[in-house]
């Protein structure tokens, strides 16, 4: 901001030198008003569409009536939350939400890391490129298409997977008809779709390791396996931890749109998570109770924020890598 030499351009770069400290705010506006003009639209968008709904959260503590509006409805305190905690559905949706998230967390991140380590040691550059190209591809398939492909491949009577199972002499498995398979289908289809994509960040972290460390290890006669455990994994730990923190923060939001696309009447006992529950009881009922479902959603978000804050704090203490 401050100009080093005395060339006077007065207009745009009003140097704070001449009239120092007249008024911080006015001075800043005088110098940088164009930048603030640029920010008008984005900030307005943010206030309306990100912070606007946050004002709407108040109906979680109110008895929302459409005629009275968000601001006019009566305050009733924590009634909606208490009703949710006491409802029959509460333990079920909590269990499903946490189970799906934790299962996914424990499988998908390590799988991406595993793939990245393998790719990193491939010596043939062309093959390496091919592996990357093909494993990233499923990431770009839409949720709807992915679920449709899964349904086709796993269908009991006509699916190719069951054709193979039968060919190997086993009996066909009802993957889609039995609720207990839902969790595995959800998590492993996620691995199929995202393992490659999620490995990118680890591959680049691995490529960033100082080659001299590896060379020194090779001179000392370390095998590649040894180098993985003594050099690679410790080096990318910070990246791994940061990503884990971010994922823990998302524990309460399971990949909702995918669960929603996979959900059917057969698997509901395993597939009903908090967010699908919110959607289902709001939009399949003729008289939706927006206050109640907002309260459930808020409960969900708050747990998420608490989790990410706690894990971030722990990680900063224990490992010195943290998000903030």
């Amino acid at each position: 901001m401050s100009k080093s030499n005395g060339i006077d351009t007065e207009d745009i770069v009003a140097t704070g030198k001449s009239k120092k400290k007249r008024n911080g705010f006015l001075n800043e506006m005088h110098i940088n008003w164009q930048l603030y003009v640029m920010l008008i639209l984005p900030v307005a968008y943010l206030l309306i569409f990100a912070y606007g709904p946050m004002l709407g959260i108040q109906i979680a503590f109110k008895d929302y009536k459409m005629a009275e509006g968000i601001w006019g409805s009566k305050w009733i305190g924590f009634d909606h939350f208490i009703r949710f905690f006491k409802s029959m559905q509460f333990p079920l949706v909590m269990k499903n939400t946490l189970f799906l998230s934790l299962y996914n967390l424990l499988i998908s991140t390590p799988m991406a890391l595993f793939l990245a380590v393998c790719v990193n040691y491939l010596t043939n550059a062309k093959y390496k490129k091919t592996v990357q190209m093909i494993t990233y591809a499923p990431h770009f398939i839409s949720v709807v298409i992915m679920v449709a492909i899964m349904n086709q491949m796993l269908a009991t009577r006509t699916g190719i997977v069951n054709n193979i199972i039968e060919l190997l002499g086993f009996t066909r498995i009802e993957f889609l008809g039995k609720a207990q398979y839902f969790r595995h289908l959800y998590v492993w289809s996620g691995v199929w779709q995202e393992a490659g994509w999620n490995s990118i960040i680890y591959i680049s972290a691995l490529a960033g390791i100082d080659p001299q460390i590896h060379e020194a290890a090779i001179v000392d006669g370390a095998t590649k396996i040894r180098r993985i455990f003594s050099i690679d994994l410790p080096s990318i730990m910070p990246t791994f931890i940061i990503l884990m923190i971010m994922n823990v923060g998302r524990i309460m939001n399971v990949g909702f749109t995918k669960v929603f696309a996979m959900q059917n009447t057969l698997n509901k006992t395993y597939s009903e998570v908090i967010e699908t529950y919110v959607y289902n009881i709001t939009f399949t009922s003729g008289l939706p109770n927006y206050s109640y479902t907002t309260a459930i959603g808020l409960f969900n978000s708050v747990i998420g924020v608490i989790l990410i804050t706690v894990v971030n704090g722990l990680s900063r203490k224990l490992t010195e890598s943290s998000l903030w």
């Binding site: 940088n32 900030v43 709904p53 109906i59 968000i70 923060g249 907002t294 959603g297 978000s301 924020v305």
Partner: peptide, 29 residues
């Protein structure tokens, strides 16, 4: 870097990554 009120505005943005009002308030808006 010379934008004086940069920090609070950035906070305004990043906070929305951490906390979301949820489906229903968004729908009502």
């Amino acid at each position: 870097k010379d934008l004086k009120y940069r920090k609070p505005i950035i906070m305004l943005f990043t906070f929305t990554m951490l906390f979301n009002a949820g489906m229903i308030p968004n729908y009502l808006l």
